[in-house]
Computed example of a mutant assay.
Amino acid sequence: MPETFVDLGTVNAPSGVLVLGMAGWIDYWRELGQPLSERARTAASSGGAHLREWLCEAVAVPAAADRSLKVRASTSLSPFDEEPTIATLEISLGLPWPGAADRSVPVRLGDLPVDRCGMVIGDAVGLDTWTGMDGDPADGLADVFYWGLYADDAHAQFGGERIARYGADGPQGWLDLPLTEAAARAAELTAWCDRLHGKGLMVSIDKHTDFHRFRRAGWHHPLRAGAIEVGGCRVLGIEWDQGDHSMRHRGQRDASQVYPVTLEANEAGEMVMRWTIPPHDFDDEDE
């Protein structure tokens, strides 16, 4: 049976080099020596390759610099909740398949684990500016969330709104606060809980880093995919359900939970990059 794909959105790669990488480690490439863009440019010049240093991993390929590049996915059911999760990720590269190459044979570029923090697809140069979870937000804003045993009591005292995420009610809190106001609000909630209860209320501040923005962009997408602008480029992020990740991808490379990335030709004779994650075999559970 042929795969059925759904559109996740588009990205662009004005540098001519596209990267599929682990979201939790994008900002660490520059800490390890060469920026991601330099490594990716070298990999793309040979037709594409897998990049790995320390815990950072990515695949870089050449891509058309003058157009939007479509990202699609096929799905399979998760063993965690039997909801659809990504089985094949396909990124159109906007370039013709090399005339002398056999288009019937996929070109293997390497493999990637599913990062617990999600995956990012974007321009190599644009991603050099990526701000990770500990970075500073360019807009100076943050979101504050609270939840737990005394969340209703806290709401009666401080207010806030219910933040829907992933098709369900999420925590309560406030979006798009100036950083100083967000810090003061979180401190007030924490002090109130410590004074009256001692524990039973969790409070978090999520600064508007690129890491948080891509996750927030996918809050209302069934496959947790969302697009943001990074370094002047349109970047697509995909967050993984933590239950699904724990059951299928936990341990990542150390546990040999890695999946092949290939270059292939589509029906129009153009190159696509494909990352293939085998569906869970529910029949094995019955044996």
Results as ranks from 00 to 15, higher is better:
residue 252 Q to A: 15
residue 63 A to L: 01
residue 104 S to A: 15
residue 53 E to T: 11
residue 81 D to A: 15
residue 38 E to Q: 13
residue 282 F to Y: 14
residue 113 P to W: 00
residue 261 V to C: 00
residue 147 W to C: 02
residue 38 E to L: 12
residue 237 G to H: 03
residue 37 S to R: 10
residue 65 A to M: 03
residue 184 A to S: 14
residue 138 A to M: 07
residue 283 D to I: 07
residue 217 A to L: 03
residue 25 W to E: 11
residue 28 Y to N: 10
residue 1 M to A: 14
residue 153 D to F: 04
residue 225 A to N: 01
residue 70 K to C: 01
residue 34 Q to A: 15
residue 275 W to A: 05
residue 117 C to E: 12
residue 75 T to S: 11
residue 217 A to D: 10
residue 10 T to P: 02
residue 64 A to P: 00
residue 79 P to Y: 09
residue 231 G to R: 09
residue 260 P to V: 05
residue 77 L to H: 08
residue 68 S to T: 07
residue 76 S to E: 09
residue 100 A to T: 15
residue 49 A to L: 04
residue 1 M to I: 09
residue 204 S to T: 15
residue 87 A to Y: 09
residue 43 A to P: 06
residue 268 A to G: 06
residue 149 L to E: 14
residue 221 H to D: 15
residue 172 Q to Y: 12
residue 146 Y to I: 05
residue 215 R to M: 11
residue 86 I to Y: 05
residue 150 Y to P: 03
residue 203 V to E: 06
residue 121 I to T: 08
residue 86 I to W: 02
residue 55 L to Y: 06
residue 93 L to E: 02
residue 117 C to M: 13
residue 48 G to P: 08
residue 45 S to V: 01
residue 40 A to I: 05
residue 233 C to N: 10
residue 63 A to Q: 03
residue 201 L to W: 00
residue 3 E to Q: 15
residue 211 F to I: 03
residue 96 P to Q: 08
residue 216 R to M: 09
residue 271 M to N: 02
residue 188 E to L: 10
residue 182 A to E: 10
residue 226 G to D: 05
residue 145 F to V: 12
residue 200 G to A: 04
residue 118 G to K: 02
residue 166 Y to E: 04
residue 183 A to D: 13
residue 81 D to R: 15
residue 133 M to H: 14
residue 259 Y to V: 09
residue 201 L to F: 02
residue 236 L to E: 02
residue 42 T to S: 13
residue 6 V to R: 12
residue 193 C to L: 01
residue 172 Q to L: 15
residue 250 R to I: 03
residue 134 D to W: 00
residue 249 H to S: 00
residue 278 P to G: 05
residue 267 E to M: 10
residue 34 Q to I: 06
residue 50 H to P: 05
residue 240 W to S: 12
residue 77 L to S: 09
residue 34 Q to W: 06
residue 5 F to Y: 15
residue 241 D to Y: 05
residue 229 E to K: 14
residue 82 E to N: 12
residue 83 E to P: 08
residue 155 H to Q: 08
residue 109 L to Y: 03
residue 4 T to W: 00
residue 253 R to L: 13
residue 175 L to K: 09
residue 164 A to P: 01
residue 52 R to T: 09
residue 138 A to H: 11
residue 255 A to C: 09
residue 38 E to A: 14
residue 107 V to A: 08
residue 74 S to T: 15
residue 225 A to G: 10
residue 246 S to A: 14
residue 101 A to W: 05
residue 252 Q to E: 15
residue 252 Q to S: 14
residue 9 G to S: 06
residue 121 I to W: 01
residue 210 D to F: 02
residue 281 D to E: 13
residue 148 G to D: 01
residue 204 S to G: 10
residue 70 K to R: 14
residue 61 V to R: 05
residue 261 V to N: 06
residue 10 T to R: 02
residue 104 S to F: 08
residue 221 H to A: 06
residue 194 D to V: 00
residue 184 A to Y: 02
residue 26 I to N: 07
residue 101 A to Q: 13
residue 234 R to H: 07
residue 134 D to A: 04
residue 129 T to W: 07
residue 105 V to E: 11
residue 215 R to I: 12
residue 199 K to T: 11
residue 19 V to I: 07
residue 87 A to K: 15
residue 246 S to D: 11
residue 268 A to E: 12
residue 212 H to L: 00
residue 254 D to V: 04
residue 107 V to K: 11
residue 206 D to L: 12
residue 17 V to M: 02
residue 86 I to N: 07
residue 61 V to A: 07
residue 202 M to G: 15
residue 127 L to T: 05
residue 237 G to S: 06
residue 69 L to H: 04
residue 108 R to Q: 15
residue 51 L to N: 08
residue 224 R to V: 06
residue 253 R to F: 09
residue 145 F to G: 04
residue 12 N to L: 03
